[in-house]
Simulated assay, not measured.
Amino acid sequence: MQKIVDEIKKLVKFKKDTDVGDVVLIAAKEPQMLVYAYVTSIERDASRKDEWWHVQMAMLSLPVQHITWTLRTEQMTGQEIFTMGGEERFVQAVDFSGVVSKTGPEVTTEKKVSPLKRIK
């Protein structure tokens, strides 16, 4: 699993923390899974002595699936690969800063040509 995570980190810019409203990338080896989820809630698990959190997420799939995982800070911030049901998992918030232009969409006077017409 560490090899998969290392490859993902070459392709995706991640945040160091995870907050409500973040989009996280979830990776699993078995069953093979690579999916995004939107963090809808993070609440302290008061039933545990150590610091654990109920992380509620909406998996961005069709149909949208709502899940709640109980994770430690290191697990929900990509610092630690963890197991669920004996299978390894990785979760970390994606950093979208710098992905979208702050000045808005690029304006051009050039006529747009369908990609299919360019193939000829």
Rank of each mutant, 00 (worst) to 15 (best):
M1N: 14
K3H: 12
K3S: 09
V5H: 05
D6G: 04
K9V: 02
K9F: 03
V12N: 12
V12S: 09
V20F: 00
V20L: 05
L25H: 03
L25F: 05
A27E: 14
A28C: 13
K29Q: 12
K29A: 10
E30A: 04
P31L: 13
M33T: 12
L34E: 06
L34R: 04
A37H: 00
A37I: 01
Y38C: 00
E43H: 00
D45G: 05
A46W: 08
K49H: 08
E51A: 08
W52I: 12
W52K: 13
W52V: 07
W53S: 11
H54I: 01
S61M: 11
V64L: 09
I67F: 03
L71V: 01
L71M: 07
L71R: 06
L71I: 03
R72D: 02
T73D: 10
M76A: 01
Q79Y: 05
Q79I: 07
E80V: 10
F82D: 01
M84D: 14
G85F: 00
E88C: 12
F90S: 04
V91M: 14
V94I: 14
V94K: 03
D95F: 03
F96A: 04
V99W: 12
S101Y: 10
K102P: 15
P105C: 13
P105M: 15
V107P: 10
V107G: 09
K112D: 09
K117H: 00
R118Q: 11
K120A: 15
